[in-house]
Amino acid sequence: MIRIPPAALFGLFFTGLYFLMAIFAPWIAPYSMTEVVGGVWEPWSSKHWIGTDNIGRDLLSRMIYGGRTTIFIATMATIISFTTGSILGFTAAVIGGWIDQLLSRFVDLIMSIPTLIFALVVLSVMPVTLPILILVMGLLDSTRVYRLARAVAVDINVMDFVEAAKLRGEGRIWVIFREILPNALSPLVAEMGLRFIFAVLFVSTLSFLGLGVQPPNADWGGIVKENKDGIVYGIPAALVPAVAIATLAISVNLVADWVLNRTTSLKGGRG
């Protein structure tokens, strides 16, 4: 029986909650996303739990739909960065030689430009649509996954048990999937959590800068952008997404930490 520490339990609960809210948004949200249902920046009330936004839409509903967009984009980007990064990373580590050199140097080059700057440069010439946004985010982030996957796989690849498998005559597929992958899984899963958080923060930042999700659709970053002018009048509507982003990020972080610790202690075994 696995004992789950309270911190991880907290993380699992909130992560689960956010994903459920994202999936069932149309059933949970009290109002539609775009309908103007009240005055501008109404305070919290029983009708509008967390008030209304800059043009009188229900903020809670917008937050729920916005969370759906944010989580969807971040999840898709993470899936892309993971599949691309880990497949290429493993391949580079196991095959080695010039393929490894070529891929690794290319990744070095991409990573020598800050991600945000790179994204801004690319988005200045590409139409900002959801698929392009996801693709740009996923591919840029896959460089980080590639580095980790390659480093982990290189470490495992020189272990005697992998050599034993090669000596036995096992093929590359067996070596990657049966010998290396099971041992690389825990750092990769933990990294997946961190990449997901990064994607959430990144897409929020892009939307805030006006280069992410385009109106009337909105994600959490976009909601900040819409309501930021209220700040100087003492209206905190723009800070609501901060709470959402922070709790989601912290929850996923706690789960990732737990996954990493649990599996490393299992691997350590008896000293």
Binding site: V232, G234, L239, P241, I245, I250
Partner: peptide
């Protein structure tokens, strides 16, 4: 602090 994007830290402080 690494769980909140920079721009939101900005608005929190501003507020």
């Amino acid at each position: 602090s690494i769980s909140v994007p920079e721009f939101l830290i900005g608005y929190i402080l501003m507020y």
